[in-house]
Design a protein around this nucleic acid. Sequence first.
DNA 1: GCCGTTTTCGGCCCGACTGTTTTCAGTCG
Length: 578
Amino acid sequence: MARPNEEVEALLQEYADLLAISGGDAFKQRAYERAARAIGGYPQDVSKLDAKALKGIPGVGKSIADKIAEYLSTGHVAAIDETRSTVPPGVRELMTIPTLGPKRAMTLYRELDVASVDDLVTAVHEDRLGRLKGFGPKAADNILHGVELMRAAGGRILLGEALRIAEETVSGLVAATGVERCEYAGSVRRMKETIGDIDVLVAARDEDAEAIMRAFTELPGTAEIIVHGRKKTSVRTAKGLQIDLRVLPPVSWGAGLQYFTGSQPHNIRTRSIAVRKGLKLSEYGIFDTETGEQLHAGTEEEVYGRLDLPWIPPTLREDRGEVDAALRGELPDLVTQDDIRGDLHTHTDLTDGLATLEQMAEAAAARGYAYYAVTDHAPELRMQRMTSEKMLAQRDRVRALADRYGRRLRLLHGTELNIDPEGEVDWPADFLAGFDVCVASVHSHFGLDRAAQTRRLIRAAENPHVNIIGHPTTRKLGKRAGIDVDLDAFFAACARTGTAVEVNGHPERLDLRDEHILLARRHGVRFAIDSDAHAVSELDNLRFGVATAQRGWLTADEVINTWPLTRLRKFLRGPGRR
DNA sequence: GCCGTTTTCGGCCCGACTGTTTTCAGTCG
Protein backbone atom coordinates (compact mmCIF):
# COMPACT_ATOMS: atom_id res chain seq x y z
CA MET A 1 0.00 0.00 0.00
CA ALA A 2 2.96 2.24 0.56
CA ARG A 3 4.33 4.29 -2.29
CA PRO A 4 7.16 2.56 -4.15
CA ASN A 5 9.78 5.02 -2.88
CA GLU A 6 8.81 4.37 0.72
CA GLU A 7 8.70 0.62 0.20
CA VAL A 8 12.18 0.67 -1.28
CA GLU A 9 13.41 3.01 1.44
CA ALA A 10 12.09 0.65 4.12
CA LEU A 11 13.63 -2.35 2.37
CA LEU A 12 17.08 -0.77 2.09
CA GLN A 13 16.92 0.48 5.66
CA GLU A 14 15.99 -3.01 6.81
CA TYR A 15 18.97 -4.44 4.97
CA ALA A 16 21.23 -1.80 6.53
CA ASP A 17 19.93 -2.76 9.99
CA LEU A 18 20.44 -6.45 9.28
CA LEU A 19 24.00 -5.77 8.17
CA ALA A 20 24.62 -3.82 11.37
CA ILE A 21 23.19 -6.59 13.54
CA SER A 22 25.13 -9.33 11.85
CA GLY A 23 28.30 -7.31 12.28
CA GLY A 24 29.11 -6.70 8.65
CA ASP A 25 31.08 -3.90 7.09
CA ALA A 26 29.98 -0.66 8.74
CA PHE A 27 30.60 1.32 5.56
CA LYS A 28 28.48 -1.00 3.53
CA GLN A 29 25.74 -0.58 6.09
CA ARG A 30 26.01 3.18 5.85
CA ALA A 31 25.91 3.00 2.08
CA TYR A 32 22.54 1.26 2.31
CA GLU A 33 21.29 3.77 4.84
CA ARG A 34 22.31 6.64 2.65
CA ALA A 35 20.67 5.07 -0.39
CA ALA A 36 17.49 4.40 1.62
CA ARG A 37 17.27 8.03 2.62
CA ALA A 38 17.98 9.19 -0.91
CA ILE A 39 15.21 7.00 -2.34
CA GLY A 40 12.76 8.09 0.34
CA GLY A 41 13.37 11.71 -0.46
CA TYR A 42 13.60 11.31 -4.23
CA PRO A 43 10.93 13.37 -5.96
CA GLN A 44 10.25 10.89 -8.76
CA ASP A 45 8.54 7.51 -8.45
CA VAL A 46 11.39 4.96 -8.48
CA SER A 47 9.17 2.28 -9.97
CA LYS A 48 9.06 4.38 -13.14
CA LEU A 49 12.84 4.66 -13.46
CA ASP A 50 15.09 2.41 -15.52
CA ALA A 51 18.41 1.05 -14.26
CA LYS A 52 20.35 4.01 -15.59
CA ALA A 53 18.07 6.56 -13.96
CA LEU A 54 18.24 4.62 -10.67
CA LYS A 55 22.03 4.87 -10.76
CA GLY A 56 21.66 8.59 -11.20
CA ILE A 57 20.25 8.90 -7.68
CA PRO A 58 23.02 10.03 -5.30
CA GLY A 59 24.19 7.11 -3.18
CA VAL A 60 22.78 4.49 -5.53
CA GLY A 61 25.39 2.54 -7.50
CA LYS A 62 25.23 -0.56 -9.61
CA SER A 63 24.69 -3.05 -6.82
CA ILE A 64 21.86 -1.16 -5.11
CA ALA A 65 20.26 -0.20 -8.42
CA ASP A 66 20.18 -3.89 -9.35
CA LYS A 67 18.57 -4.79 -6.04
CA ILE A 68 15.93 -2.10 -6.48
CA ALA A 69 15.19 -3.31 -9.99
CA GLU A 70 14.96 -6.88 -8.70
CA TYR A 71 12.54 -5.80 -6.01
CA LEU A 72 10.38 -3.78 -8.36
CA SER A 73 10.04 -6.64 -10.83
CA THR A 74 9.79 -9.63 -8.45
CA GLY A 75 8.82 -8.15 -5.07
CA HIS A 76 11.88 -9.78 -3.51
CA VAL A 77 15.62 -9.38 -3.30
CA ALA A 78 17.46 -12.66 -2.92
CA ALA A 79 20.40 -11.20 -0.99
CA ILE A 80 18.10 -9.49 1.49
CA ASP A 81 15.91 -12.58 1.94
CA GLU A 82 19.04 -14.57 2.69
CA THR A 83 20.24 -12.12 5.34
CA ARG A 84 16.77 -12.00 6.84
CA SER A 85 16.86 -15.74 7.39
CA THR A 86 19.88 -15.37 9.67
CA VAL A 87 18.40 -12.65 11.91
CA PRO A 88 14.88 -13.04 13.34
CA PRO A 89 12.75 -9.94 12.69
CA GLY A 90 12.28 -9.51 16.46
CA VAL A 91 15.99 -8.83 16.89
CA ARG A 92 15.74 -5.86 14.57
CA GLU A 93 12.73 -4.74 16.56
CA LEU A 94 14.96 -4.60 19.65
CA MET A 95 16.91 -1.78 18.04
CA THR A 96 13.86 0.45 18.19
CA ILE A 97 14.29 0.57 21.96
CA PRO A 98 16.34 3.64 22.89
CA THR A 99 19.81 2.71 24.26
CA LEU A 100 19.74 -0.58 22.33
CA GLY A 101 21.65 -0.66 19.10
CA PRO A 102 22.65 -3.43 16.76
CA LYS A 103 25.52 -4.75 18.87
CA ARG A 104 23.66 -5.22 22.09
CA ALA A 105 20.56 -6.45 20.27
CA MET A 106 22.70 -9.20 18.79
CA THR A 107 24.28 -9.98 22.17
CA LEU A 108 20.80 -10.40 23.67
CA TYR A 109 19.81 -12.74 20.89
CA ARG A 110 23.01 -14.77 20.91
CA GLU A 111 23.44 -15.07 24.65
CA LEU A 112 19.87 -15.10 25.95
CA ASP A 113 17.90 -16.17 22.88
CA VAL A 114 15.91 -12.94 23.12
CA ALA A 115 14.12 -12.47 19.79
CA SER A 116 11.40 -9.93 20.53
CA VAL A 117 10.62 -6.97 22.75
CA ASP A 118 8.37 -9.22 24.84
CA ASP A 119 11.19 -11.75 25.27
CA LEU A 120 13.41 -8.93 26.41
CA VAL A 121 10.96 -7.64 29.00
CA THR A 122 10.65 -11.18 30.36
CA ALA A 123 14.41 -11.56 30.49
CA VAL A 124 14.74 -8.29 32.38
CA HIS A 125 12.11 -9.28 34.89
CA GLU A 126 13.79 -12.64 35.38
CA ASP A 127 17.03 -10.78 36.11
CA ARG A 128 18.88 -12.56 33.33
CA LEU A 129 20.70 -9.47 32.04
CA GLY A 130 23.07 -9.04 34.94
CA ARG A 131 25.57 -11.60 33.80
CA LEU A 132 25.80 -10.26 30.29
CA LYS A 133 28.87 -8.41 29.08
CA GLY A 134 28.01 -4.81 28.30
CA PHE A 135 24.90 -4.80 30.44
CA GLY A 136 25.35 -3.26 33.88
CA PRO A 137 23.01 -2.15 36.64
CA LYS A 138 21.49 0.70 34.61
CA ALA A 139 20.76 -1.36 31.54
CA ALA A 140 17.60 -3.00 32.86
CA ASP A 141 16.07 0.32 33.91
CA ASN A 142 16.90 1.99 30.63
CA ILE A 143 15.44 -0.87 28.64
CA LEU A 144 12.21 -0.95 30.62
CA HIS A 145 11.88 2.81 30.34
CA GLY A 146 12.47 2.64 26.59
CA VAL A 147 9.87 -0.08 26.15
CA GLU A 148 7.42 1.99 28.16
CA LEU A 149 8.00 4.96 25.87
CA MET A 150 7.37 2.82 22.82
CA ARG A 151 4.26 1.34 24.29
CA ALA A 152 2.98 4.76 25.31
CA ALA A 153 2.50 5.24 21.58
CA GLY A 154 0.24 2.20 21.99
CA GLY A 155 0.94 0.74 18.60
CA ARG A 156 -0.28 3.98 17.11
CA ILE A 157 1.19 5.28 13.88
CA LEU A 158 2.24 8.79 13.01
CA LEU A 159 -0.20 11.19 11.41
CA GLY A 160 1.79 11.43 8.19
CA GLU A 161 1.60 7.71 7.48
CA ALA A 162 -2.01 7.43 8.63
CA LEU A 163 -3.10 10.28 6.41
CA ARG A 164 -1.45 8.72 3.41
CA ILE A 165 -3.17 5.38 4.03
CA ALA A 166 -6.50 7.13 4.66
CA GLU A 167 -6.20 9.09 1.43
CA GLU A 168 -5.23 5.97 -0.51
CA THR A 169 -8.17 4.06 0.93
CA VAL A 170 -10.57 6.83 -0.02
CA SER A 171 -9.20 7.12 -3.53
CA GLY A 172 -9.43 3.34 -3.85
CA LEU A 173 -13.11 3.45 -2.92
CA VAL A 174 -14.52 6.52 -4.66
CA ALA A 175 -14.54 4.70 -7.97
CA ALA A 176 -16.54 1.74 -6.63
CA THR A 177 -20.07 1.39 -7.98
CA GLY A 178 -22.71 3.13 -5.91
CA VAL A 179 -20.35 5.27 -3.82
CA GLU A 180 -21.99 8.69 -3.59
CA ARG A 181 -19.58 10.21 -1.09
CA CYS A 182 -16.45 8.93 0.56
CA GLU A 183 -14.24 10.53 3.21
CA TYR A 184 -12.01 9.53 6.06
CA ALA A 185 -13.17 10.54 9.52
CA GLY A 186 -11.98 9.86 13.06
CA SER A 187 -8.70 11.04 14.53
CA VAL A 188 -7.09 11.27 11.07
CA ARG A 189 -9.61 13.94 10.09
CA ARG A 190 -8.97 15.69 13.38
CA MET A 191 -5.25 15.44 12.51
CA LYS A 192 -4.18 14.00 15.83
CA GLU A 193 -0.43 13.47 16.06
CA THR A 194 -0.74 9.69 16.31
CA ILE A 195 -3.47 7.46 15.00
CA GLY A 196 -4.73 4.17 16.41
CA ASP A 197 -7.02 3.12 13.57
CA ILE A 198 -8.50 4.67 10.45
CA ASP A 199 -12.21 5.33 9.93
CA VAL A 200 -13.55 5.69 6.42
CA LEU A 201 -17.14 6.61 5.61
CA VAL A 202 -19.12 5.96 2.46
CA ALA A 203 -22.57 7.25 1.56
CA ALA A 204 -24.39 4.75 -0.64
CA ARG A 205 -27.75 3.12 -1.10
CA ASP A 206 -28.26 -0.09 0.83
CA GLU A 207 -28.33 -2.29 -2.28
CA ASP A 208 -24.80 -1.16 -3.19
CA ALA A 209 -23.33 -1.76 0.28
CA GLU A 210 -22.26 -5.34 -0.26
CA ALA A 211 -20.27 -4.64 -3.41
CA ILE A 212 -18.61 -1.65 -1.76
CA MET A 213 -17.60 -3.76 1.23
CA ARG A 214 -16.13 -6.35 -1.10
CA ALA A 215 -14.19 -3.68 -3.00
CA PHE A 216 -12.86 -2.49 0.36
CA THR A 217 -11.61 -5.91 1.44
CA GLU A 218 -9.95 -6.33 -1.92
CA LEU A 219 -7.90 -3.14 -1.70
CA PRO A 220 -4.16 -3.77 -1.90
CA GLY A 221 -2.49 -3.91 1.48
CA THR A 222 -5.25 -5.79 3.25
CA ALA A 223 -3.80 -8.66 5.23
CA GLU A 224 -6.78 -9.83 7.25
CA ILE A 225 -10.52 -9.23 7.44
CA ILE A 226 -11.58 -8.68 11.04
CA VAL A 227 -15.32 -8.20 10.59
CA HIS A 228 -17.31 -8.17 7.39
CA GLY A 229 -20.88 -6.90 7.31
CA ARG A 230 -23.17 -4.65 5.28
CA LYS A 231 -22.84 -1.60 7.51
CA LYS A 232 -19.36 -2.05 8.87
CA THR A 233 -16.28 -3.88 7.68
CA SER A 234 -12.90 -3.86 9.39
CA VAL A 235 -9.61 -5.02 7.97
CA ARG A 236 -6.06 -5.14 9.19
CA THR A 237 -3.16 -4.15 6.95
CA ALA A 238 0.07 -6.08 6.74
CA LYS A 239 1.58 -3.63 9.21
CA GLY A 240 -1.19 -4.33 11.74
CA LEU A 241 -3.16 -1.14 11.23
CA GLN A 242 -6.93 -1.47 11.50
CA ILE A 243 -9.13 0.29 8.94
CA ASP A 244 -12.89 0.49 9.55
CA LEU A 245 -15.30 1.21 6.73
CA ARG A 246 -18.85 2.25 7.47
CA VAL A 247 -21.50 2.59 4.78
CA LEU A 248 -24.36 4.99 5.51
CA PRO A 249 -27.46 5.99 3.59
CA PRO A 250 -26.85 9.33 1.82
CA VAL A 251 -29.44 11.05 4.01
CA SER A 252 -27.26 10.23 7.06
CA TRP A 253 -24.06 11.62 5.59
CA GLY A 254 -23.80 14.81 7.66
CA ALA A 255 -24.67 13.14 10.94
CA GLY A 256 -22.49 10.13 10.19
CA LEU A 257 -19.46 12.20 9.30
CA GLN A 258 -19.97 14.31 12.41
CA TYR A 259 -20.40 11.27 14.64
CA PHE A 260 -17.46 9.27 13.32
CA THR A 261 -15.12 12.25 13.27
CA GLY A 262 -15.48 12.66 17.01
CA SER A 263 -13.87 13.11 19.36
CA GLN A 264 -16.04 11.31 21.82
CA PRO A 265 -16.07 14.18 24.34
CA HIS A 266 -16.95 16.59 21.53
CA ASN A 267 -19.84 14.35 20.49
CA ILE A 268 -21.12 14.19 24.04
CA ARG A 269 -21.21 17.98 24.09
CA THR A 270 -23.02 18.27 20.76
CA ARG A 271 -25.49 15.52 21.61
CA SER A 272 -26.39 17.10 24.91
CA ILE A 273 -27.03 20.40 23.14
CA ALA A 274 -29.36 18.47 20.84
CA VAL A 275 -31.16 16.96 23.82
CA ARG A 276 -31.75 20.41 25.30
CA LYS A 277 -33.34 21.45 22.02
CA GLY A 278 -35.69 18.47 21.99
CA LEU A 279 -33.59 16.73 19.36
CA LYS A 280 -31.75 13.45 19.15
CA LEU A 281 -28.44 13.26 17.32
CA SER A 282 -27.03 9.90 16.25
CA GLU A 283 -24.84 8.69 13.44
CA TYR A 284 -27.97 8.20 11.34
CA GLY A 285 -29.29 11.72 11.57
CA ILE A 286 -30.90 14.37 13.67
CA PHE A 287 -34.45 13.64 14.86
CA ASP A 288 -37.28 15.37 16.66
CA THR A 289 -37.51 13.58 20.01
CA GLU A 290 -41.31 13.77 20.25
CA THR A 291 -42.36 12.89 16.72
CA GLY A 292 -39.32 10.83 15.75
CA GLU A 293 -39.27 12.75 12.49
CA GLN A 294 -35.88 12.99 10.82
CA LEU A 295 -34.86 16.57 10.14
CA HIS A 296 -32.98 17.25 6.95
CA ALA A 297 -29.26 17.49 7.71
CA GLY A 298 -27.35 16.05 4.79
CA THR A 299 -24.10 17.88 5.57
CA GLU A 300 -22.12 18.60 8.70
CA GLU A 301 -22.92 22.31 8.31
CA GLU A 302 -26.61 21.47 8.50
CA VAL A 303 -26.10 19.20 11.52
CA TYR A 304 -24.31 21.96 13.44
CA GLY A 305 -26.85 24.45 12.08
CA ARG A 306 -29.72 22.47 13.60
CA LEU A 307 -27.97 22.95 16.94
CA ASP A 308 -27.62 26.69 16.25
CA LEU A 309 -23.88 26.26 15.98
CA PRO A 310 -21.53 27.26 13.20
CA TRP A 311 -19.62 24.41 11.57
CA ILE A 312 -16.69 23.54 13.82
CA PRO A 313 -13.45 22.58 12.06
CA PRO A 314 -12.48 18.95 12.83
CA THR A 315 -9.08 20.01 14.18
CA LEU A 316 -10.88 21.82 17.03
CA ARG A 317 -13.20 18.96 18.00
CA GLU A 318 -11.49 17.87 21.20
CA ASP A 319 -13.81 19.41 23.77
CA ARG A 320 -11.26 22.07 24.61
CA GLY A 321 -13.82 24.85 24.68
CA GLU A 322 -14.71 24.83 20.98
CA VAL A 323 -18.41 24.21 21.60
CA ASP A 324 -18.70 27.14 24.01
CA ALA A 325 -16.69 29.32 21.65
CA ALA A 326 -19.04 28.30 18.83
CA LEU A 327 -22.06 29.12 20.98
CA ARG A 328 -20.63 32.58 21.62
CA GLY A 329 -19.74 32.99 17.95
CA GLU A 330 -16.07 33.21 18.90
CA LEU A 331 -14.49 30.33 17.01
CA PRO A 332 -11.00 31.29 15.86
CA ASP A 333 -10.47 31.95 12.17
CA LEU A 334 -7.91 29.15 11.87
CA VAL A 335 -4.72 29.46 9.88
CA THR A 336 -4.81 27.37 6.70
CA GLN A 337 -2.25 26.09 4.26
CA ASP A 338 -3.34 28.82 1.83
CA ASP A 339 -2.33 31.49 4.36
CA ILE A 340 1.28 30.30 4.39
CA ARG A 341 3.53 32.54 2.31
CA GLY A 342 6.82 30.82 2.92
CA ASP A 343 8.87 28.27 4.80
CA LEU A 344 11.46 29.48 7.31
CA HIS A 345 13.26 26.26 8.27
CA THR A 346 14.63 24.00 5.54
CA HIS A 347 17.87 22.20 4.68
CA THR A 348 19.94 21.42 1.61
CA ASP A 349 22.66 18.95 0.77
CA LEU A 350 25.19 21.38 2.16
CA THR A 351 24.39 19.67 5.47
CA ASP A 352 22.02 16.74 5.94
CA GLY A 353 19.48 17.57 3.27
CA LEU A 354 19.13 15.49 0.14
CA ALA A 355 18.43 18.14 -2.48
CA THR A 356 20.53 21.02 -3.74
CA LEU A 357 19.82 24.65 -2.97
CA GLU A 358 18.60 25.10 -6.52
CA GLN A 359 16.24 22.11 -6.33
CA MET A 360 14.76 23.23 -3.02
CA ALA A 361 14.31 26.80 -4.27
CA GLU A 362 12.65 25.59 -7.44
CA ALA A 363 10.26 23.41 -5.43
CA ALA A 364 9.48 26.37 -3.17
CA ALA A 365 8.73 28.50 -6.21
CA ALA A 366 6.50 25.75 -7.60
CA ARG A 367 4.55 25.79 -4.35
CA GLY A 368 3.85 29.45 -4.94
CA TYR A 369 5.71 30.71 -1.91
CA ALA A 370 6.46 34.42 -1.74
CA TYR A 371 9.60 33.78 0.30
CA TYR A 372 11.73 30.84 1.30
CA ALA A 373 14.51 30.50 3.85
CA VAL A 374 17.42 28.08 3.57
CA THR A 375 18.60 27.29 7.10
CA ASP A 376 21.35 24.70 7.03
CA HIS A 377 22.95 23.45 10.23
CA ALA A 378 25.67 25.39 12.04
CA PRO A 379 29.17 24.13 12.99
CA GLU A 380 28.46 22.88 16.50
CA LEU A 381 26.45 20.01 15.08
CA ARG A 382 29.79 18.40 14.33
CA MET A 383 28.64 15.66 12.07
CA GLN A 384 27.51 18.19 9.50
CA ARG A 385 30.99 19.65 9.11
CA MET A 386 29.75 23.16 8.61
CA THR A 387 32.26 25.99 8.46
CA SER A 388 31.96 29.76 8.22
CA GLU A 389 33.49 29.59 4.76
CA LYS A 390 30.92 27.09 3.52
CA MET A 391 28.12 29.16 4.96
CA LEU A 392 29.35 32.35 3.30
CA ALA A 393 29.81 30.53 0.01
CA GLN A 394 26.23 29.31 0.29
CA ARG A 395 25.11 32.87 0.96
CA ASP A 396 26.70 33.96 -2.33
CA ARG A 397 24.84 31.18 -4.12
CA VAL A 398 21.57 32.17 -2.45
CA ARG A 399 22.05 35.81 -3.45
CA ALA A 400 22.85 34.87 -7.03
CA LEU A 401 19.87 32.57 -7.20
CA ALA A 402 17.66 35.24 -5.65
CA ASP A 403 18.47 37.50 -8.58
CA ARG A 404 17.13 34.86 -10.91
CA TYR A 405 13.78 34.63 -9.12
CA GLY A 406 13.41 38.36 -8.55
CA ARG A 407 10.14 39.36 -6.95
CA ARG A 408 8.49 36.04 -7.72
CA LEU A 409 10.25 34.31 -4.82
CA ARG A 410 12.38 36.06 -2.21
CA LEU A 411 15.16 33.76 -1.04
CA LEU A 412 16.32 34.28 2.52
CA HIS A 413 19.65 33.04 3.78
CA GLY A 414 19.44 31.62 7.27
CA THR A 415 20.80 28.94 9.53
CA GLU A 416 19.67 26.52 12.18
CA LEU A 417 21.88 27.25 15.15
CA ASN A 418 22.57 24.89 18.04
CA ILE A 419 21.63 25.96 21.53
CA ASP A 420 24.40 24.75 23.84
CA PRO A 421 23.85 23.84 27.51
CA GLU A 422 24.43 27.45 28.53
CA GLY A 423 22.04 28.82 25.91
CA GLU A 424 24.84 30.06 23.68
CA VAL A 425 24.71 29.50 19.92
CA ASP A 426 27.26 29.01 17.13
CA TRP A 427 29.13 32.03 15.78
CA PRO A 428 29.69 35.49 17.22
CA ALA A 429 27.13 38.29 16.92
CA ASP A 430 28.72 39.99 13.92
CA PHE A 431 28.59 36.79 11.91
CA LEU A 432 25.00 36.12 12.94
CA ALA A 433 24.05 39.62 11.84
CA GLY A 434 24.75 38.57 8.26
CA PHE A 435 21.84 36.11 8.18
CA ASP A 436 18.32 37.06 7.12
CA VAL A 437 16.85 34.65 9.63
CA CYS A 438 18.23 32.52 12.46
CA VAL A 439 16.44 29.47 13.82
CA ALA A 440 17.99 28.14 17.04
CA SER A 441 17.29 24.63 18.27
CA VAL A 442 18.35 22.12 20.89
CA HIS A 443 20.20 19.14 19.41
CA SER A 444 22.04 17.77 22.43
CA HIS A 445 22.11 17.62 26.23
CA PHE A 446 18.53 16.41 26.49
CA GLY A 447 19.11 15.25 30.04
CA LEU A 448 19.70 18.58 31.78
CA ASP A 449 17.35 19.35 34.63
CA ARG A 450 14.34 21.62 34.32
CA ALA A 451 16.07 24.73 35.64
CA ALA A 452 19.01 24.30 33.27
CA GLN A 453 16.82 23.59 30.22
CA THR A 454 14.62 26.57 30.97
CA ARG A 455 17.65 28.82 31.46
CA ARG A 456 19.25 27.76 28.18
CA LEU A 457 16.08 28.21 26.13
CA ILE A 458 15.38 31.64 27.62
CA ARG A 459 18.95 32.68 27.03
CA ALA A 460 18.65 31.62 23.39
CA ALA A 461 15.39 33.55 23.04
CA GLU A 462 17.09 36.61 24.50
CA ASN A 463 19.83 36.47 21.88
CA PRO A 464 18.96 39.41 19.62
CA HIS A 465 20.02 37.46 16.54
CA VAL A 466 17.80 34.46 17.22
CA ASN A 467 14.46 34.89 15.47
CA ILE A 468 12.83 31.49 15.92
CA ILE A 469 13.27 28.70 18.47
CA GLY A 470 13.11 25.51 16.40
CA HIS A 471 11.31 22.37 17.62
CA PRO A 472 11.31 23.78 21.15
CA THR A 473 10.84 20.60 23.20
CA THR A 474 12.85 18.43 20.79
CA ARG A 475 10.61 15.45 21.39
CA LYS A 476 10.46 12.55 18.93
CA LEU A 477 7.11 10.83 18.84
CA GLY A 478 7.33 7.30 20.18
CA LYS A 479 11.06 7.66 20.71
CA ARG A 480 11.91 10.44 23.06
CA ALA A 481 9.99 12.62 25.45
CA GLY A 482 10.62 16.34 25.17
CA ILE A 483 13.18 18.05 27.35
CA ASP A 484 11.99 19.16 30.77
CA VAL A 485 11.27 22.88 30.52
CA ASP A 486 9.22 25.47 32.39
CA LEU A 487 7.23 26.33 29.29
CA ASP A 488 5.41 29.27 30.88
CA ALA A 489 8.69 30.98 31.67
CA PHE A 490 10.05 30.17 28.23
CA PHE A 491 6.98 31.44 26.37
CA ALA A 492 6.93 34.59 28.46
CA ALA A 493 10.54 35.20 27.42
CA CYS A 494 9.67 34.64 23.76
CA ALA A 495 6.79 37.09 23.97
CA ARG A 496 8.99 39.65 25.72
CA THR A 497 11.88 39.38 23.26
CA GLY A 498 9.85 39.04 20.07
CA THR A 499 11.20 35.56 19.38
CA ALA A 500 8.87 33.27 17.45
CA VAL A 501 8.41 29.66 18.52
CA GLU A 502 8.26 27.01 15.87
CA VAL A 503 5.48 24.60 15.05
CA ASN A 504 7.67 22.04 13.34
CA GLY A 505 5.71 20.06 10.77
CA HIS A 506 7.91 16.97 10.63
CA PRO A 507 5.50 14.10 11.44
CA GLU A 508 7.95 12.69 13.97
CA ARG A 509 8.22 16.00 15.80
CA LEU A 510 5.06 18.14 15.59
CA ASP A 511 6.81 20.38 18.06
CA LEU A 512 5.34 22.52 19.56
CA ARG A 513 2.44 20.17 19.99
CA ASP A 514 -1.18 21.34 20.09
CA GLU A 515 -1.47 21.69 23.87
CA HIS A 516 1.77 23.64 24.11
CA ILE A 517 0.58 25.99 21.39
CA LEU A 518 -2.55 26.69 23.40
CA LEU A 519 -0.31 27.53 26.34
CA ALA A 520 2.04 29.68 24.29
CA ARG A 521 -0.63 31.79 22.64
CA ARG A 522 -1.89 32.84 26.04
CA HIS A 523 1.47 34.59 26.43
CA GLY A 524 1.00 36.45 23.15
CA VAL A 525 3.79 34.53 21.44
CA ARG A 526 4.28 34.61 17.65
CA PHE A 527 4.69 31.34 15.78
CA ALA A 528 6.46 30.04 12.68
CA ILE A 529 5.01 26.96 10.99
CA ASP A 530 7.90 25.23 9.24
CA SER A 531 8.50 22.02 7.34
CA ASP A 532 12.11 21.39 8.50
CA ALA A 533 12.34 19.76 5.07
CA HIS A 534 15.46 17.74 4.28
CA ALA A 535 14.15 16.82 0.81
CA VAL A 536 11.88 18.29 -1.83
CA SER A 537 9.07 15.92 -0.88
CA GLU A 538 9.32 16.98 2.76
CA LEU A 539 8.31 20.54 1.97
CA ASP A 540 4.82 19.09 2.13
CA ASN A 541 5.32 18.33 5.85
CA LEU A 542 4.20 21.88 6.36
CA ARG A 543 0.63 20.64 6.13
CA PHE A 544 1.10 18.68 9.36
CA GLY A 545 2.43 21.83 10.98
CA VAL A 546 -0.65 23.73 9.82
CA ALA A 547 -2.89 20.97 11.19
CA THR A 548 -1.09 21.07 14.54
CA ALA A 549 -1.34 24.86 14.58
CA GLN A 550 -5.07 24.55 13.98
CA ARG A 551 -5.33 22.10 16.85
CA GLY A 552 -3.64 24.82 18.89
CA TRP A 553 -6.30 27.33 17.74
CA LEU A 554 -3.87 29.53 15.84
CA THR A 555 -5.07 32.25 13.50
CA ALA A 556 -3.04 33.47 10.54
CA ASP A 557 -2.14 36.71 12.26
CA GLU A 558 -0.26 34.83 15.00
CA VAL A 559 1.91 33.04 12.43
CA ILE A 560 4.80 35.12 11.08
CA ASN A 561 5.15 33.18 7.84
CA THR A 562 1.65 34.11 6.76
CA TRP A 563 2.73 37.74 6.78
CA PRO A 564 3.83 39.73 3.75
CA LEU A 565 7.61 39.91 3.46
CA THR A 566 7.82 43.53 4.57
CA ARG A 567 6.03 42.77 7.82
CA LEU A 568 8.07 39.60 8.33
CA ARG A 569 11.33 41.48 7.73
CA LYS A 570 10.33 44.08 10.28
CA PHE A 571 9.64 41.35 12.82
CA LEU A 572 12.99 39.68 12.10
CA ARG A 573 14.83 42.97 12.60
CA GLY A 574 13.22 44.52 15.62
CA PRO A 575 12.11 46.31 17.70
CA GLY A 576 14.97 45.80 20.07
CA ARG A 577 16.75 43.53 17.60
CA ARG A 578 19.98 44.17 15.82
C1' DG B 1 28.63 -0.42 -1.39
C1' DC B 2 29.60 4.29 -3.20
C1' DC B 3 32.50 7.64 -5.08
C1' DG B 4 36.06 10.76 -7.80
C1' DT B 5 39.05 18.91 -9.68
C1' DT B 6 42.81 14.18 -3.62
C1' DT B 7 39.68 9.86 -9.18
C1' DT B 8 39.42 3.29 -10.23
C1' DC B 9 41.59 2.40 -4.76
C1' DG B 10 41.23 3.84 -0.42
C1' DG B 11 38.72 6.51 1.87
C1' DC B 12 34.02 7.07 3.74
C1' DC B 13 30.52 11.67 9.47
C1' DC B 14 32.73 13.32 13.79
C1' DG B 15 32.34 14.06 18.67
C1' DA B 16 29.98 13.62 23.00
C1' DC B 17 27.78 11.09 26.27
C1' DT B 18 26.53 6.95 28.90
C1' DG B 19 27.34 3.21 31.24
C1' DT B 20 30.25 0.22 31.28
C1' DT B 21 34.56 -0.49 32.34
C1' DT B 22 39.48 -0.19 34.54
C1' DT B 23 40.60 2.02 29.19
C1' DC B 24 36.50 1.91 26.10
C1' DA B 25 32.37 -0.04 23.27
C1' DG B 26 27.99 1.26 22.03
C1' DT B 27 24.68 4.62 20.96
C1' DC B 28 23.14 8.88 19.29
C1' DG B 29 22.59 13.10 16.67
